[in-house]
Design a protein around this nucleic acid. Structure first.
Length: 571
DNA sequence: GCCGTTTTCGGCCCGACTGTTTTCAGTCG
């Protein structure tokens, strides 16, 4: 029983109790216990073993007993009974925006709804209008929510897919007779959302590789199998498409399967102008095959330098490559410091020291602490008094740690009128300020743009945090004039954040490209709420590369000595 | 259901917004 499995069972219990109309604080207790376990770095099973479960915040007598039963027997009677009392899949409907447990309960009891399709039908029949607490607008909102869920249900965030994909790739490399193996398709291009994991390998014993593949514990269902190919589904629902090819075909297949469609289409135009034929089996000239050992050689035959997968979207990379002006893209090792890190002073789970030590272990030179400001109540945002106290702790930890510098920062809320949530006199004393929006998302485009522009004019703002507020596959970005924001950022010397959290990846890569054209600086930030969150930087780097971002355009690639000067000299 | 006591019961981060009501419930962040 993994920690994650325990977390999802506790969360299910919380949702089920909420659905049944239980005491809200009991529900919160389960949610809190789940959050605590999620933040753990140790195995729950070992804590059970040592009888140390109760030491975790939010776990008392009752939940301790339940977790112990889960760990020791692999099941939990209380959970199974609860689960049996609720129709299978009903809670999937909670993914619909504006539909919570209370309304779902009414829909289920009064209309007998258990599936998305039934709910959609009921909306079309206007049957929600007669229910208590429902009206025309609610029904319309639910209908729109259903469309949204339908459009995203078979899509997955890169943050879920990539770790699973890398693990499978490693297992096959170690255990199966493959010579070359690579991720391909959208995941190789670091697309923020993908429909499946594409994996290719070369082998002289393809059927043996497939046999090993289908036996892997991560594979929960075989969707199709044919010679040299298997499509399966992982336990977390993500489809995986494994193709086995010969050594000879591998480079062409890799090139072709990486895509994107638009890129390949543009490549075909180029190929036919040169009198060549290219497909996933080879590159041909006058019926003769041009031998390529690698993808680089395929590009060479096309008269082009290697184009990194992240750029293959047909947004000008072919022309740029032809003219020898592809950007030199940022790499993971270029990042020297981390900004935008939360601690338990607001809604993070780790201490300042824990975050700093982890950052040091990863090789960073500086880390900027930026907890929420007071307007973010739900996150225990800092008021003036607590902020001052936090500075004392930062000073103390800084004195005790060698080799990493901890900076004083804040993620200050941009209020509805564009002013910031803390006094300027206080902001002036910070090393850096990230200004972000966490409320009033539904302003119209003009109002929202003015609000953010005003915030950026504040002389103490260093970075605009998650500039569009999108949550991938769950919340649309707020309406904003990005051209105007980038212009404002340039004028005021404010860096735009590329929030690396896999739920955000905000700025969008197309906006990053716009920022590069305008000469706006970027700060790639982890927005970490726990130690593991620091690792999310890889998603930021991948997205930055998609946006044509070179090292030079990124604020936190500066080594400490230079970064320090920048902080003093920006204004 | 957890926690912290003025130790065995009362409080538990809460405000904005929306749509439904006609004073509030549900949802969201």
């Amino acid at each position: 029983m993994t920690n994650q499995e325990i977390v999802s069972i506790l969360n299910f219990i919380a949702t089920a109790l909420e659905f049944q109309g239980e005491n809200p604080f009991k529900i919160k207790a389960y949610q809190k216990a789940a959050r605590s376990i999620e933040a753990l770095t140790t195995d729950v099973a070992s804590l059970v073993e040592r009888g140390e479960l109760r030491q975790i915040e939010g776990i008392g007598e009752a939940i301790e007993k339940k977790i112990t039963e889960l760990v020791k027997t692999g099941r939990l009677e209380y959970y199974e009974k609860l689960k049996a009392s609720i129709p299978e899949g009903l809670f999937e409907l909670l993914k619909i925006p504006h539909l919570g447990p209370k309304k779902l309960k009414i829909l289920h009891e009064k209309l007998g709804i258990t599936t998305l399709g039934e709910l959609e039908y009921a909306c079309h029949e206007n049957r929600l209008l007669e229910l208590p607490g429902f009206g025309k607008k609610t029904q319309q909102a639910i209908l729109e929510g259903i469309q949204f869920v339908k459009s995203t249900w078979d899509q997955f965030r890169l943050g879920e897919a990539l770790p699973a994909a890398l693990e499978l790739k490693k297992l096959l490399k170690d255990q199966a007779p493959v010579t070359q193996i690579s991720l391909t398709g959208g995941i190789r291009r670091w697309k923020e959302v993908i429909k499946d994991i594409d994996l290719i390998a070369s082998s002289s014993e393809p059927e043996k590789v497939l046999e090993i593949f289908i036996q892997l514990p991560q594979i929960s269902q075989i969707l199709s199998r044919e010679p040299g190919r298997c499509v399966a589904r992982l336990a977390n629902g993500i489809p995986i498409d494994l193709n086995l090819v010969s050594e000879e075909i591998y480079p062409y297949f890799l090139f072709y399967s990486t895509g994107s469609k638009d890129f390949l289409k543009a490549v075909q135009d180029l190929v036919s102008k040169k009198g060549l034929i290219l497909n996933d089996r080879g590159l041909f000239k006058e019926g003769r095959k041009l031998t390529c050992q690698s993808e680089e050689e395929v590009f060479w035959h096309l008269g082009l330098p290697y184009i990194p997968p992240e750029l293959r979207e047909n947004t000008g990379e072919l022309v740029a490559a032809g003219e020898g002006r592809l950007p030199s893209l940022i790499e993971e090792k270029d990042i020297r410091g981390l900004l935008h890190v939360h601690t338990h002073w607001s809604d993070g789970t780790a201490s300042i020291k824990e975050m700093a030590k982890a950052a040091q272990e990863y090789g960073y030179e500086y880390i900027g602490i930026s907890d929420h400001s007071k307007a973010a109540f739900y996150a225990h945002g800092l008021d003036e008094e607590r902020l001052l106290k936090q500075w004392e702790e930062i000073d103390r930890v800084n004195r005790g740690l060698q080799g990493i510098r901890i900076l004083k920062g804040i993620e200050v809320d941009i209020l509805a009128d564009g002013t910031l949530d803390l006094e300027e006199a206080l902001l002036a004393q910070l090393d850096f300020v990230i200004a972000s929006i966490h409320s009033r998302f539904k302003m119209n485009r003009n109002e929202m743009t003015q609000r953010i522009l005003k915030a950026m004019e504040n002389p103490y703002v260093t970075i605009l945090g998650h500039p569009t507020g999108r949550l991938i596959l769950s919340r649309e970005p707020y309406q904003v004039d990005m051209e105007a924001l980038l212009e404002g950022a340039r004028k005021n010397g404010v860096a735009m954040e590329l929030n690396a959290h896999p739920h955000r990846l905000d700025l969008h890569w197309l906006h990053l490209k716009m920022a590069m054209e305008k000469g706006v600086k970027i700060s790639i930030n982890p927005d970490a709420h726990q130690v593991e969150g620091l690792r999310d930087m890889v998603y930021g780097i991948g997205t930055a590369r998609r946006g044509w971002v070179p090292k030079e355009a990124v604020l936190n690639t500066l080594p400490w000595e230079e970064f320090k000067k920048k902080l003093k000299n920006t204004r």
